[in-house]
Amino acid sequence: MPPALATLSGLGAGRRPALPALPARTAGLALLLAVAFVAIPLTATDYWYNAILIPFLIMALAGLGLNLTMGYAGQASLGTGAFMAVGAYATYNLLLRLPELPLPVSLAGGGLIAGAVGLVVGLPSLRIKGFYLIAPTLAAQFLIEWIFNQVGWFSNYATSSAISAPRLVFLGHDLSSPAGRYALTLTSVTVVTVVAWRLVGSQTGRNWRAVRDGETAAAVIGVPVARAKLSAFFVGAAVSGIAGALWAFAYLGTVDARSFDLDRSFQALFIIIIGGLGSLSGSFIGAAFIVLLPILLTHLSNAALGGALDGGQISNLQRIIFGALIIGFLIKEPNGLAALLGRLRRPAC
């Protein structure tokens, strides 16, 4: 077949499956945003905001940060909790020490500072590969948590280790009501997700995935491997940092290093393993799963067993279920729920 003909037939063959999928996806996304920005604020109760929507959105963002570093660029990390802590403390200090800065600037600044810390934590990735990279990120997780507990300057020498967050005000609006905190969280998550979506589709994102799928081949064809790894750590930590700031200000209302411990790092890891490594929507699906499952279990046990299980037993049950699911996903579906749902939508593929 001459090249011209191949191009013509290729246009038909290559684009045909994409055509119906694209408008459907755009419509789905528009509907989702309409629900999130309009329908939910009209109907949601404070319980929905505080117990479900706000933690879901923030953990989705934390997972998204890890997904950029680990799912897209293939750089394993257990430092998500630490990056969240840096974002929270940095934003707290920006709000405290530079009160003239508007809230979005402090939030973005906290993210950038977390990104810079992530870049330093990512330096060993230039020499250490794969699974072993977990060790330096784990060290950073413990070290950073310890520093925030030990160095008083970060918490403005508060006597309690949990410091209450400054009031959230933007353009004269008080955002401390549940609806206000939801609006702040949703807007931040939407903006950051759009930026992440742009990045993964750009040359940067392609370089990340090239390094993940074949580091030697990537180096040989001229992909800047070191820059790709460090930028993945920077962007991932910055996103997790913004999530950490929101966790402290929009969810807990206090800044506390203990809420960003290793468990939080594992939670982010479970979110992307269950939701889908290397998938933006997977971070949201995984977060929904991990936030909703405990609530669902509590309701189920109350309804079915009449409260025969106490809280401790439920949380143990929850761990068993998560453990089994993670093993199951790693073996059967490493691309997570996102890939599973994608196949359900298009059974032909």
Binding site: R206, N207, A210, D213, A217, A218, I221
Partner: peptide, 22 residues
Amino acid sequence: FQHAALFSGLSVFDNVLAGLAR
């Protein structure tokens, strides 16, 4: 490469685009 060390999770188009990284 002898064993076509492609970026296996990427589409054909993205593999070719990755070749332009430099």
